[in-house]
């Protein structure tokens, strides 16, 4: 073995040891940051169930209102929407009272529901004994959801939601550069209302499409709230740590 070969081999060995040390360090357990990258989606009909208990707290319930998110996202320099020049003359109560101020919502925002104890009949029996929650909604015993489970969950959710992601008048415009990020926190029975949908943000907004930002957010919200596209039956065992808290990025780039 020549000197150059020995030198090279030595360097390789040292490098190997160094990298092994680095990789070993990465395996040391520590607190994980919430995932931010998209999970690769694999279509599958089978979703596994893991009984490994952890003490990870359940997703915190949020009282954030979609309307508040929308308000916060409307840029200050957005032109005001057309306002009536004439205030309607009073109509019979209660309409007359409501026209003097922004119309009150008939449906006062419901408090975010605690996850239901009962499970979907379609999957009952699969996950008995997993994910028991205490009164505060914090799990005392929850299953870990593997990456493949996550991918399968996401795949099924996306498949259900996508047919209702309707851009309508926004398609073919500069609005298609806007990617909306939504967080949904469905109830355990699979239901979802607007108080369980949070707008995390929108990217790709620029001077040419700023006027469409509000509508793009609402298109994403409508996709998850459309009763024609409900969440599919998902395993109760994978609710905590799994589909109880989902972030969806709505990317309009590939209209069909």
């Amino acid at each position: 073995m020549e000197r150059a070969e020995r030198l090279g081999l030595g360097v390789a060995v040292i490098g190997h040891i160094g990298l092994f040390a680095i990789l070993s360090y990465t395996l040391i357990p520590r607190a994980e940051l919430p995932r931010r990258e998209a999970v690769a989606v694999t279509l599958s009909d089978d979703i596994g169930e893991f009984a490994t208990a952890t003490d990870r707290p359940a997703p915190a319930s949020q009282e954030r209102a979609v309307e508040d998110d929308l308000e916060a996202m409307v840029p200050e320099d957005t032109e005001p929407l057309p306002q009536p020049r004439v205030t309607p003359t009073p109509a019979p109560q209660p309409a007359a009272e409501r026209r003097t101020e922004p119309a009150p919502r008939r449906d006062t925002r419901p408090e975010r529901r605690q996850p239901a104890r009962s499970r979907s009949s379609r999957i009952s029996g699969i996950t008995d004994g997993i994910g028991t929650a205490n009164d505060t909604g914090t799990s005392v015993s929850q299953a870990t959801v593997s990456a493949s489970d996550q991918a399968n969950l996401i795949s099924r959710i996306v498949t259900a939601v996508r047919p209702c992601y309707n851009l309508g008048s926004l398609s073919g415009t500069a609005a298609e550069d806007i990617v909306v990020r939504l967080r949904i926190q469905p109830s355990r029975d699979g239901s979802l209302n607007r108080s369980q949908v949070t707008v995390l943000g929108a990217r790709g907004v620029n001077g040419s499409n700023r006027e469409y930002q509000r509508q793009m957010v609402e298109a994403a919200q409508s996709a998850v709230l459309n009763p024609r596209c409900p969440l599919p039956p998902l395993p109760d065992a994978l609710y905590d740590n799994g589909w109880s808290d989902v972030v969806l990025n709505f990317i309009p780039a590939q209209l069909t």
Binding site: E32, P34, V39, T144, Y165, L167, W243, V246, N249, T256
Partner: peptide, 17 residues
């Protein structure tokens, strides 16, 4: 395979018009 923490995340790519 070991860890899942925070919301799971995915992309809804493309849509309808």
């Amino acid at each position: 395979d070991d860890v899942s923490s925070g919301p799971i995340e995915g992309d809804v790519v493309g849509g309808i018009s």
